[in-house]
């Protein structure tokens, strides 16, 4: 995989802005992002009596990172969230890609209506859909006599209802920006539409697909609203787990900023790691390269 966006022509491309400007701006961005995060780490490491009330970095101890695991069932929350968020990301990207392609490449009667409805779905606040959605799920459940509420699958489907409109919307927008000539070239070479789709369009769309997959993942990982109604004790996700912890911590009497921050860091780690791994996709310049080559 290439990490370079554009195949560069030596001598011409190197005339970018001065390095110090880049570093200055980069440093400013990094500071803005990292200071609050560093503060979160600092507080997590502070002893409970002073956590959150001082910036002094003394008497630091990683205790809270150990205490948190026994305070709540963090491992199980993490496992549930990983499964749910990953499948949501993969499924909505794949399903969404097909729909987006149709939307981008074919003109048909209800096209604009569909596009509008995509945005309508995406823009509807979850809190509005929650009540009616639950009614429907209960009806389905009663009709088929199978307990679906509380299952991973149902939660994934629910998240897909939010991630799909976004994915389709985003990908169809992206696909329209792709030059049509690659497809035409493939058609001339005798490839079927499906072959073109899989062999040419899909790789070209990969950067956008990764982005939508990430968004879907984050959406599922961050949700608290739906998880609070659609999970049961053994399918709880991190969002719910955190909420639970916040409430019990507050009920215990004294503030527990250190433990809370430790829990926050831990719940963020899997997502961060995943991002770092797949970030190469974001960086890779598949599109430009392929059009050229």
């Amino acid at each position: 995989m290439r990490t370079d966006i554009r195949p560069s022509k030596p001598g011409v491309r190197n005339r970018g802005p001065a390095k110090w400007i880049l570093y200055l701006c980069g440093g400013a961005f990094a500071l803005v992002v990292l200071l609050p995060v560093a503060y979160m780490f600092l507080v997590a490491l502070q002893p409970i009596e002073v956590a959150g009330s001082t910036l002094a970095p003394d008497r630091l101890s990683p205790r809270s990172f150990i205490d948190v695991w026994s305070a709540i069932d963090l491992a199980s929350y993490l496992a549930n969230s990983l499964v749910i968020a990953t499948i949501t990301a993969l499924a909505s990207s794949l399903v969404g890609f097909g729909a987006a392609y149709v939307l981008a490449r074919f003109k048909f009667r209800f096209r604009n209506f569909l596009r509008l409805s995509l945005l309508a779905c995406y823009t509807t606040p979850g809190i509005v859909l929650l009540i009616p959605l639950y009614v429907i799920y209960v009806q389905i459940q009663n009709a088929v006599s199978v307990q679906i509420i509380g299952s991973h699958a149902l939660l994934i489907l629910t998240y897909m209802s939010f991630s799909l409109p976004y994915t389709i919307w985003m990908l169809s927008g992206y696909l329209t920006t792709l030059p049509a000539d690659v497809e035409e070239a493939a058609a001339i070479d005798g490839a079927t539409r499906f072959q073109t789709l899989v062999r040419i369009i899909l790789p070209l769309t990969l950067p956008a697909l990764v982005v939508t997959a990430i968004f879907s993942f984050v959406l599922a990982w961050n949700d608290v609203l739906f998880a609070s109604v659609l999970t049961k004790n053994d399918t709880r996700t991190v969002g719910i787990g955190m909420q639970l912890f916040v409430s019990t911590a507050a009920d215990g009497g004294l503030p527990q900023w250190n433990n809370l921050m430790a829990a926050g860091i831990i719940t963020a780690v899997p997502a961060v790691v995943l991002f770092i791994i797949i970030q190469r996709y974001l960086i890779s310049g598949l599109t430009a390269g392929s059009v050229k080559g």
Binding site: L130, P132, Y134, V224, S228, L244, V246
Partner: peptide
């Protein structure tokens, strides 16, 4: 309480009733 998150679950669980 204090950190003000648990309410959504509380209220939301109520939803199940409504639905």
């Amino acid at each position: 309480k204090g950190l003000n998150t648990p309410m959504s679950r509380r209220g939301l669980l109520k939803l199940s009733g409504l639905s």
